[in-house]
Design a protein around this nucleic acid. Structure first.
Lengths: 215, 215, 215, 215
DNA sequence: AATGAATGAGAGTTCATTCAT
DNA sequence: TATGAATGAACTCTCATTCAT
């Protein structure tokens, strides 16, 4: 198109043809970044397309529309989020409490600092009403499962005397709370923000040990 | 895209004339609800207008535009949020630890259940990039102040032997974490969600006592 | 009205009550300036009102609406334009040709420099289609009459030997042409423009004398 | 306000795809007609679009907005107006004065009768304040140049004895005045108007010959 | 006569999506 | 698969005008 008037004519990208699965993946990645940064409505198909290396019309060769992209993105992201989750608590006494806590925090703090996770988290907070079924399904099939599995291991550790029977072990899901508080603060202030991450983690660690250490 | 169209709008309502301050307040309240539910972009001036009891044009008699409404809303909401914040820790030993903790949790859990706060919280997560100066100013002048004041009281209590010198008292801001984790979960799942609030609070209480109880 | 947000609160003019005819005149004068500068559509009732010293609603106490103001303005202006027009040619030889020409040019060049006339002229060029009947009536009853009267005097002067029977005396209306060409140029360039007025007038004078001087 | 609504628009015309340069040209032509007839503000994008054979949205594929169309239109029109201008005065005696004057008047009177020129002329009178830079540039680079060139030729003719050294030859730009007076009258009265064109031209011719004929 | 809140009818512009190539 | 012109449905904001005081 020739934009008459004042067009500073631009890059004039060549038409590049990729294999559908590659292009689809590029589009989803672009969508993750754009949706994550601007939310659903403020992201234009054109933004995603540009980031994925084609024009907006090209996107429609791969996805039925904006909603479809969003759904595919969340489906994919939530699947990955599930795969990532591995429970680290070992009731066999093969690792010390410190080791287990550090492994746990390593994973947790890597996660809350990972832009991919951060973007997904914001999307879930912002746009979960767009795909309620997806969210519900993910929650029931993935989150709940994971929680149950983790809680079972914790209970086993408690029974094995490796962990103390403390308030925290009653509802172990709360053990992530400080890390998420930090993340929320970062999302609102749009900068690393309020509390230094290292200090948060260090205190988080001390509290966990405090609560879990058998007496 | 708009999700829930409860626009079975009805009445050919007569022209009602209000005092500007009343109408302005109605508009801001309407804006809080609509922006909180749908976000900035997905809220139409017309939605706000209808909820405030006039037509969209009437809104422009009170605010210069959508941005102005949003800014006024956040300015107001953050001011109120600041006024609300009162520190409850008393270093004079006039109250027992249980009393102080319960007072603290009363306020905290009332807050995270209050729709006004919830809507503001989601807005901050979603749209804080629209008013960065506002957010920064609020954080610096209100939040930081409050945190410092609270931490000072905690330190005094510790010195007075009313609270134990535990990891938590080092960075007392983390003491809200479980409540916010619950709120985040609720925002994502769009229902009271994952953990029963009572159980969360009960465990939260036990952990606080555990961490704060002098030995 | 309190414009919440960022209103630099303004003059807060007192409510002043004038006699209807005074206010109406103020409104028409304001309308002339605003319409003349910006044209009909780009002039807002509010602009006129402000210039006339009241708020836009007040205008409706005096005129039925925008069209009515415009029509009243043109009616008035064209009436005045007619009254102004006095033919200066005297077939009785009581004045020399130079005197008559200079009187003629005095009036003509005063007119094309007069902002009131200029604004009317631009309005006629721009918006005459809004009030075709008015224009036609004015043209038939005023312009044509004036032209005929003038031409008759010229013819009498020619017969009396005071003016030469030249092309110009055949259609004396053309004798204003250079002045109007200057005015048109000024209107387009929005500055005094292309030709220095003095030079134009001087050459205009020489040409008139050339054409009218009996040989 | 819009005056003449010949919008008995009709056909559910199929989507027609044109080459960008063709469509752009159509849009500019449509813009010339609509702007020329109704002025900038009273012309709606939709009017231009309909006349150019597409819907208003389609226009935005070719021009950034209403201002851009206007600017492109004037840029183009003024360029063409410049190309048209060719000086006809020949100081080599190869043509008689009558021939030169007639050639000159042919072009001049064709111009003031040409709707394309007429529309441009009215636009310049009406809306020149919208594109002051454009106008100034055109005036300086085109009009002034042309005038200087023409005046130089006239001077040469005078020196060659082909033209008389009369007031008119001092500032030859005034030689178009009667034709423009006729045009202005036509624009105001919206009909061929006041003076019959033939008579004007005939007298114009006589005056030019009178002023230019060597004695 | 004058005010200011409120209204209805647009107008320009954006964007997801479709059509023809 | 990919493109770019074209479309229809919004949505923000403006303005002439009316209503109640």
């Amino acid at each position: 198109m020739r934009m008459n008037g004042n067009s500073s004519s631009t890059s004039q990208r060549k038409r590049v043809r990729l294999r559908p699965e590659d292009r689809s993946r590029l589009i989803l990645e672009a969508a993750r970044v754009e949706f994550g940064a601007n939310g659903f409505t403020d992201t234009r198909i054109e933004d995603i397309a540009a980031r994925a290396g084609l024009t907006k019309t090209g996107v429609y060769a791969h996805y039925r529309g904006k909603d479809a992209i969003f759904e595919a993105l969340l489906t994919e992201a939530l699947k990955v989020a599930g795969v990532d989750s591995k429970v680290v608590w070992k009731p066999d006494g093969s690792e010390s409490l410190e080791e287990m806590v550090d492994t746990y925090l390593d994973r947790l703090y890597r996660m809350v600092q990972n832009p991919v996770f951060t973007e997904l988290f914001r999307l879930l907070l912002t746009e979960s009403n767009r795909v309620p079924d997806l969210i519900r399904h993910w929650h029931e099939e993935v989150v709940i499962q994971y929680r149950a599995q983790e809680q079972a291991l914790i209970d086993a550790c408690v029974r094995a005397g490796l962990l103390r029977n403390s308030p925290l072990t009653k509802l172990f899901a709360l053990s992530t709370a400080p890390a998420f508080l930090w993340l929320v603060s970062k999302l609102i202030l749009r900068k690393d923000g309020e509390f230094p991450l290292d200090q948060v983690r260090q205190i988080h660690r001390a509290m966990l040990l405090d609560q879990l250490q058998p007496r």
